[in-house]
Amino acid sequence: METLAVYVPRLITTKEYFAPGHRACMGCGEALAVRLVCKALGRNVIIANATGCMEIVSSPLPYTSWEVPWIHTLFENAAAVASGIEAGIKVLRRKGKYSKKPKVVAMAGDGGTADIGFQALSGAFERGHEFIYICFDNEAYMNTGIQRSSATPFGASTTTSPAGKVSIGQATWKKNMPAIAVAHDIPYVATACPSYPFDLMNKISKAIKIEGPAYIHILSVCPTGWRLPADLTIRAGRLAVETGIFPLYEVEEGKYVLNVDFPRLRPVEDYFKLQGRFRHLTQEVIAQIQERVTAEYTRLREKAARVRDNE
């Protein structure tokens, strides 16, 4: 586990840029992720936010939870809107009409990132805009009632991949969005989870300084969609990391660094046990998933080791 530094309020700002009064479910890991991200981003930002839980719970007209400039975009174009803002600022600065340099940030859920906003995102990476894209991955389309996305993990029961007599739930493996971001050769890619808050905030601080696109993929535990007691949100996130299901790593200029590693991973079942969406899984399926998680984790470790050896 990450060393939890004592006396937290002395280490991070006590300012809240994501104000309370938002309407996320109690115990929402995505709301916590947004809160921590905003603390790390600070005031000098402009955020473009695709629709999804976080947009809906934070901005029921005439209220807003945002304490920083924030624009709601459509589902499919958060990255395109962010690109436009970044390009606009560049031009205004060149013409001497604007002197500030706010960091441009795009945010979306896993549906808005891995499925619907995917081409806008790929385009923005390819054009090399200087912005941070943050995917809040709660592993389904939660805002509209738990429909599967391409980031839903294998075996999870959702309303459109329901487990039953024949179906084991989601029948495809989770799309590897961070790897796709890496394949665009962008300068910075990282995974994070609010159960490791300092790691998460460090990565945001790092991304702010990157010239060019940065992609941060945050596992955001959703007690409602994962069928999990609300007080176990942090624990579930920790277990996702400790089982190797969601490893925390960074890829800087193509070089992999595993930020949190364990001599031995916990069995994936420890993570599944907590959650109703995996309750139906048989030992056979769990073994199948275990094998895949172990193999992927080993590959990731090797990539990180290669970087260490070369340095």
């Binding site: 104000a19 007209l61 005439p62 807003t64 939870s65």
Partner: peptide, 12 residues
């Protein structure tokens, strides 16, 4: 919306 953080009024 011109009032940042106005959701603070809303009791949850």
């Amino acid at each position: 919306l011109t009032k940042p953080g106005s959701a603070r009024q809303y009791r949850t």
